[in-house]
Simulated scan of single mutants.
Amino acid sequence: MPRTAVEDNQRMNLRVPPEVKSRLARAASLNHLDLTSFVTQAALREADAVIAAAEKIKLSEDSYLRVLSLLENPPEPNEKLLAAAKAMPKSV
């Protein structure tokens, strides 16, 4: 059964084969880092790349121009949008 992550715990245990740990330790040593710093830096670089890719929206030039045009010249609201707006709770 998986254990629940503890928010205030600063430890993270990884199980890797000995040859993987050895390669990581060698690379860390070549960069004059301890194993924890090396693995953390590499993991953070990958995490940042994954997050950046997930947060980007890629559009073709035609789509980009269409979005800009709609932002500058929005269409009149239709009945469905008006009904949805009326159903929204009043903000304080």
Results as ranks from 00 to 15, higher is better:
82 L>Q: 07
41 Q>H: 08
92 V>Y: 05
86 K>D: 11
59 L>T: 01
52 A>I: 01
45 R>M: 13
53 A>Q: 12
33 L>V: 01
4 T>I: 09
71 L>I: 06
17 P>S: 07
21 K>L: 14
36 T>R: 13
61 E>G: 03
91 S>R: 12
71 L>H: 05
81 L>N: 03
86 K>V: 07
86 K>Y: 11
68 L>N: 12
52 A>E: 10
68 L>E: 06
77 P>F: 05
77 P>M: 14
42 A>E: 05
45 R>D: 08
91 S>T: 03
7 E>W: 02
64 Y>C: 03
23 R>I: 07
62 D>T: 07
36 T>K: 11
12 M>W: 06
75 P>R: 11
51 I>F: 03
35 L>G: 00
87 A>V: 03
80 K>N: 06
3 R>L: 15
2 P>L: 12
51 I>C: 01
55 E>D: 13
13 N>T: 14
80 K>I: 10
59 L>G: 05
65 L>K: 09
53 A>I: 01
34 D>A: 12
49 A>R: 15
74 P>V: 05
67 V>M: 07
92 V>H: 06
26 R>Q: 14
16 V>L: 14
10 Q>L: 14
35 L>C: 03
74 P>D: 03
25 A>G: 03
32 H>P: 00
75 P>Q: 04
12 M>F: 09
29 S>K: 14
64 Y>V: 00
1 M>P: 05
76 E>H: 12
48 D>G: 02
17 P>R: 12
73 N>R: 13
82 L>F: 02
13 N>R: 14
40 T>A: 15
90 K>G: 04
37 S>I: 01
19 E>T: 05
29 S>M: 11
3 R>M: 09
40 T>H: 08
52 A>M: 07
7 E>N: 12
49 A>I: 02
81 L>Y: 12
76 E>V: 15
85 A>Y: 06
64 Y>Q: 07
8 D>A: 11
91 S>Q: 11
63 S>A: 14
21 K>H: 10
5 A>K: 12
14 L>K: 01
91 S>V: 14
1 M>C: 10
78 N>K: 08
62 D>M: 04
22 S>A: 15
65 L>M: 06
72 E>P: 00
75 P>S: 08
27 A>D: 09
75 P>L: 06
2 P>T: 05
59 L>R: 08
24 L>M: 13
78 N>F: 03
92 V>D: 08
65 L>A: 13
52 A>G: 04
